[in-house]
Structure formats: structure tokens, C-alpha cells
Design a protein around this nucleic acid. Sequence first.
DNA 1: GATAATTGTTATGGACCATATCAAATATCG
DNA 2: CGATATTTGATATGGTCCATAACAATTATC
Lengths: 173, 173
Amino acid sequence: MTVSKAAEKSSEKPADTAKGRKDAAEAQPEALQLGELSEQLGYVLKRAQLKVFENFLRCMASLQLTPAQFSVLLLVEKNPGRNQTEIASTLGILRPNFVAMLDNLESRDLCARIRSTNDRRSHILVLTDKGKAVLARAKKLVATKHEARLNDLLGQANREALLAMLSKIASEF
Amino acid sequence: MTVSKAAEKSSEKPADTAKGRKDAAEAQPEALQLGELSEQLGYVLKRAQLKVFENFLRCMASLQLTPAQFSVLLLVEKNPGRNQTEIASTLGILRPNFVAMLDNLESRDLCARIRSTNDRRSHILVLTDKGKAVLARAKKLVATKHEARLNDLLGQANREALLAMLSKIASEF
DNA sequence: GATAATTGTTATGGACCATATCAAATATCG
DNA sequence: CGATATTTGATATGGTCCATAACAATTATC
């Protein structure tokens, strides 16, 4: 598959009109044939995912939250009192890689590590007041600017069907 | 969102049965609440994408083809005589990053760079005989082991609907 | 024919992902 | 109890992918 973010340059190709193919028998303008590629689930899935993340980042520009950071805040809010290992593994983040991520969120005073009194090895994670406030604003931005756009594009019913199918793939494929 | 590949460890959580919560009032077993995360398109999309790529790699293990490499071979076959810039940009690959990729495919004798006689700057890309043969086998593997599984999981109609929605997101979001 | 643009390439840095390893704390079991 | 194993957070490190700048060779433009 492939699909990076930087294919935004030569996207608008001239159609096969008089202006597109210029005079009469000039070299083909461009516009490659995707062929079976457009039927490959992985290819289309990846392209869609990149677009969605891209849009997410634009919507969150004012809060400077990446999709990964947003998911951490959401999960910590929903599951207060859990430690790093539990939060990280639920999100599919490896513990070593979670450290720098938390360092970042903690340095921005969005969440805090608290030494557990039960098990003094582990750090309990909680949202700070600022973290709760930022997350609340983030949720609104996502709902109004991000997810709402999906509804406009696909319709409510289709959007739910899409989510259901993706969940099925994520859990049963 | 987040979602890496390494969340395959503590996935099977015991349900909240007698065996799940053990005796009576013991510490909560585990099983975090995903909450709104499972409604976030980006999160589910990424998880699904990782699963699909993972399965793709397993299906292609005998041919040692990554999704990106497969997409290159497909596109070169469908569009013979195009140069590196055209193939790369169509796939969303930046030209500098495409060089090593082609070096790899060329070293395995799957495709070849040919200096264009029209424009001696550019390299025309073609599949070798071996490349055509490998691609043919790859297509069969993908169709029978990879895409077929999607049909089993979602059904033909749903699979097509999914592809259509993802294509719409990829192109219009 | 001088200048600008394009093609493939190299070098380089960043982001993300994965493994091995460690010290501190806890669990396990003789 | 005490030796050993396990768990937790952390560091170091390497790999892959993505992105930008810069370059030589070639071609286009004026």
C-alpha cells in the first residue's frame, strides 16, 4: 500500500477534455490508472486513516493535541486511578514509549503521576483541573468540527455502520 | 488515538463472572472502560488498519512483500513506462523515500529502472518477468487469503459498502 | 545561450515502534 | 523468615517511515 501524507501536490489533474489533452495527439497528460489498487482494503483504509488524522490535527490545532494524546486523556478520565501500564497497554502503547508521552502531558500540566500507596512501584494517573478543562474543550471540537463532518459526508446511519464494521475488523480480523 | 501493534498481550480479559472477579470483594480484575474512545472514528480506523496490514503481511510472508511494495508492483504493472516521480507521487510516496524502495525491488529482480530516451533524466519503471510472476502469485494470495477473509467477516455487500465509504473519506474528507 | 525547472539521488532529522536492560518494589515459595 | 522471581517505571538503543534541503545531470524557457 503506502500512502503518505505528502500527495497533496499533483492531485488536481486536468480531466480528459480539450484543455486536458491539449491539442490533439500530444503526450498523455498524466493521471495514472490505479487499477486494482482502489479495491485493496488496506490501501483505501490507510488513505482514509491518514485523511482522518490530518483533519483531527487541524481541528485540534488550538489545543495542540495529537490523536494519541487525546486518547490518553480520554482513557485516564474514564478510568481514574489506573497506572501507566494499564493505560498504555489498553491503548496499544508499549510502556517504554509511554514514558515520554506522559512526560509531555505532565509538563503541560494536563495530567499527573501519583505514587500509589498500595504498590509503591506504580504511578497512578489522573487528570489535572487544566487537563479536565482542556479535554472538555477537545471533546467539543472533535464533536462539532471532526465527527460532525463525517455525518455530513456519509450520513448518520452510514457513519454508524462504518464504525461498526471497523470495530469488527479491529477485534475479529 | 494511538494504537500500536503490541497490544496482543492482555487482550483476553475475564468477564465479570464469579471466575472473573474471583471471590467476592477482591480488587477489580482489570478491563478498562474504553468509553467514548470506541466512538472515535480515528481510533477505530487506526486499529482496523493495523490489523489489516498485519494480516496482509502474514498472507504475504512467503513472498516477502509489504503492503507498500505490493502497491508499487501493482501500479507499475498497470502503468508501464512511467517514471519514478509519477509512480511515487500517485502512491503518496516522496521521491527521496522512493529511491531505497526501488533499490530493494530492483535488487530482488522484481522491477527495473530504464533510462528514458525521451528525457534522459527520468527512469522508466517496468516489471521484470520475475516481478510479473511474483505479482501474479501475490494477487492470488491476497484474493484468497486476505480479501476473502473480509467477505467471510462482513459479507460481500458490507465489504463493498465499507470500501466505498473509505474511498469517499480518502477523497473528500 | 543564460537562466529556470525537473529528475533521481544523498544526507539528515523527526516521529513512531520495538527490544533489552535496569533499579526499586512487590510477590512467591521454600 | 529469606532467597528468588515478577512487576513497574524508566533508559538506552535500533529500526522503519516520513519529511525537508541540497546537489548533479538534464531539459525547458526565454
